[in-house]
Simulated assay, not measured.
Amino acid sequence: MIPGITINGFTVAAIATLVMGLINAIVKPILLLFTLPLTILTLGLFLFVVNAISFSLVSYFTPGFTVNSFLDALFGSIVLSIVSSFLGKIFEAES
């Protein structure tokens, strides 16, 4: 969907998903704690930057998953958030 992001196969996507889960569980809370004043100052908009940093870290730790620039990571994290929210609504309605 985004030209600056490439995933080389299904196994790379599965590994990237696992790495994303680990980063969201370990690194992201630490980033949120350190950037809390800036997040409050920007009324929460800085969370997009924190998500893009997390997305870039996944690219760094996963071979075969590349993100070319910070803007690509920002747009990728926004698309990931929208898709995740949409899937959450679908599966929430079926339960």
Rank of each mutant, 00 (worst) to 15 (best):
F61C: 14
V27D: 09
F46G: 04
L22V: 03
E92R: 02
T11M: 04
F34C: 10
I40Q: 04
N51A: 15
L57P: 07
L33K: 14
S95I: 11
V27W: 02
S56I: 14
E94G: 01
V83E: 03
S77P: 10
G4V: 06
L41N: 06
S95H: 03
G76T: 07
L57K: 10
S56N: 08
T66D: 14
S54F: 02
S54C: 13
S69A: 14
S84H: 11
F86N: 10
V50N: 08
L31R: 11
T42Y: 12
F65Y: 13
N24F: 10
T39C: 12
T6C: 00
A16F: 02
L32K: 13
S56M: 15
G76F: 05
F34G: 05
P3R: 01
G44T: 10
G44K: 00
F61V: 12
T6W: 00
T11F: 12
G88C: 11
I23W: 01
T42D: 15
L18V: 06
G44L: 09
F10K: 02
L45G: 05
L36V: 15
F70N: 11
V67Q: 03
G88S: 07
I78N: 03
L33E: 08
Y60S: 15
L36S: 14
N8P: 00
M20Y: 04
I26P: 12
M20H: 06
E92P: 00
G44N: 07
V27C: 13
L45R: 02
T35H: 05
G4T: 05
G21V: 07
I5E: 03
Y60G: 12
K28P: 12
I5P: 00
I26C: 15
D72C: 09
S69W: 04
L32N: 05
A13I: 02
I40C: 12
A13L: 13
F61Y: 13
S54W: 01
K89W: 15
F55C: 12
V12Q: 02
P63A: 06
V49T: 04
S77T: 07
L31H: 09
A16E: 01
I23F: 02
L57Q: 07
L18W: 00
I40S: 06
I78F: 10
P63Y: 05
L36T: 15
N68D: 08
A73W: 03
F91V: 15
E92D: 02
F65E: 14
L32I: 11
S81W: 13
K89N: 13
L18H: 01
A93K: 07
P63N: 11
L22N: 01
S95Y: 02
N51C: 09
V49E: 00
F55P: 06
I5A: 01
T17V: 02
L57G: 05
I53K: 14
S95G: 09
L32V: 11
N51G: 12
S54N: 08
I23N: 01
F55Y: 08
I5Y: 00
T42R: 04
V67P: 04
V27P: 10
L80F: 09
I30D: 09
N51T: 08
G21K: 06
E94T: 06
K89Q: 14
L71H: 11
I5D: 01
L18I: 03
S84L: 15
